[in-house]
């Protein structure tokens, strides 16, 4: 249970990072389109992704054992 929750969070974090990064302003020529993000607050999503991926470690440690619940 602990293992796959952590794995899920890491994967989720990475996905969020990818979505955030690709959602932000695209690389390419200096044009009006490339100066705006594809969707608003995309960088926020990227940052959340990084935090989620890292806090997987928190979850991994802090998950209470099934035994003494």
């Amino acid at each position: 249970m602990r293992r796959n929750v952590t794995a899920a969070m890491i994967a989720g974090g990475i996905v969020l990072m990818l979505v955030g990064y690709l959602g932000a302003a695209p690389w390419g020529a200096d044009t009006v389109a490339n100066s705006d993000p594809r969707f608003s607050f995309a960088p926020a999503v990227f940052v959340i992704g990084v935090i989620v991926a890292l806090s997987a470690a928190l979850v991994y440690e802090l998950m209470p054992d099934r035994r003494n619940k």
Binding site: T31, V32, S35
Partner: peptide, 14 residues
């Protein structure tokens, strides 16, 4: 300048 602008406030038009 367009490259480094962190928020896309500086942009180049067609």
């Amino acid at each position: 300048c367009v490259k480094v602008c962190p928020t896309g406030a500086r942009f180049k038009r067609e």
